[in-house]
């Protein structure tokens, strides 16, 4: 088990280099004026301004040289400077990534746990009204577009009822807690700022619920299907025949086996949401990496595009690794395999 994990870890730098290389060259061959974020419309026909911008941003160098410089800088933790924000990409990511992670972790935890519970209940009460209700709830979560769900949620819970705070990670007039992890909830707790912690949690609830709902939609349906399949297996019949209680049958004998595909999906959903929560981030004014990526793509901000691709790729690789380890923990057959 440990050996497999170490092998996977050792492969990661090479896989990451592959991602970097593909991302770097793909972005260079994208259609569009690469100076769009660097020079406004008025000066785009001014040769002196164009030449100065190209020199300053290294766009006058041959592609191969730019690649070598980029990889060398990357090894030192320098991901370049964003064309759009004009700040080091590493600084941008240090601000943006924790915001997204905080939202995605909360959403996946919430959506995953609720999804598993609803999936079990749906399987248990298969084809009964409870099952139908759960399936409709799951279907809405996974099929209704987030831009609509989010806006409606804000309209109802923020603008009309006033139960939820508005968009953003904190109230507009509040200052962020001192930076430690970038998770406002954790940083506020570490700094002993109770009011900021309450605010951060309150602001997290609605976007996490909305994003989590999409996760519920995926997980509940998957758990339901897996559970139905597992519950029809002979060993479940044996367990029941031996007098095991329904709770024990469901949670110990059935769920453990039914969770395997769910773990895979949860892992990939987590990795996907890191760069894919853009609609939630936009609607809830959540300054995360998804909206950063979209803006970067729209303005051909190469350094930011490549960095986000690396982050996204690394997230998938890490998730894969963690999922494999989780498999082993859930399935003794894999744990004991040499």
């Amino acid at each position: 088990m440990l050996k497999v994990a170490l092998q996977r870890l050792a492969m990661m730098p090479f896989l990451l280099l592959g991602i970097v290389t593909v991302a770097f060259f793909l972005s260079q061959f994208t259609k569009g004026d690469p100076l769009v974020a660097l020079i406004g419309e008025r000066q785009m026909n001014n040769p002196a301004v164009v030449a100065a911008a190209k020199e300053r941003w290294g766009l006058d160098r041959p592609l191969a040289e730019r690649y070598v410089v980029y990889v060398r800088n990357l090894l030192h933790g320098d991901m370049g400077t964003s064309f759009r924000t004009r700040q080091p990409v590493a600084t941008d990511l240090a601000q943006r990534l924790p915001a997204t992670l905080e939202l995605v972790v909360a959403s996946v935890l919430l959506g995953g746990s609720v999804g598993v519970i609803l999936g079990i209940l749906a399987a248990k009460f298969r084809n009964r009204p409870g099952d139908t209700a759960i399936r409709i709830f799951a279907l809405v979560g996974s099929s209704v577009p987030m831009f609509w769900l989010g806006l409606i949620a804000l309209f109802i819970f923020f603008a009309t009822l006033g139960w939820s705070p508005g968009p953003g990670r904190l109230d507009t007039r509040s200052l962020p807690p001192p930076f430690v992890t970038g998770f406002f909830t954790i940083d506020a707790a570490l700094a002993g700022q109770g009011r900021t912690l309450r605010e951060a949690l309150a602001h997290l609830v609605l976007p996490a619920l909305m994003l989590g709902w999409t996760v519920v939609g995926i997980v509940a349906r998957l758990v339901r299907a897996s559970m139905i399949e597992v519950l029809s297996q002979d060993y479940i019949l044996v367990a029941r025949a031996k007098g095991a209680g329904e709770g024990r049958v469901l949670m110990t004998h059935a769920l453990r086996n039914a969770l395997m595909p769910t773990l895979t999906i949860l892992g990939f959903t987590f990795a996907y949401l890191i760069t894919g929560a853009v609609l939630t981030e936009t609607i809830f004014s959540w300054p995360g990496i998804g909206s950063y990526a979209v803006e970067a793509a729209r303005q051909l901000d190469y350094p930011a595009i490549i960095a986000v691709t690396i982050i996204g790729g690394a997230a998938f690789l890490l998730t894969n690794l963690v999922t494999d380890i989780a498999y082993a923990l859930v399935d003794p057959r894999l744990r004991d395999r040499r």
Binding site: F155, P165, G166, P167, G168, D171, T172, R173, I283
Partner: peptide, 21 residues
């Protein structure tokens, strides 16, 4: 003075209505 990033016009309006902006 705080200039708050709110990309969406509807969200800007809601913030005005609730006193957030």
């Amino acid at each position: 003075i705080i200039i708050k990033q709110v990309p969406d016009a509807v969200a800007q309006l809601q913030m005005l209505q609730t006193g957030g902006a």
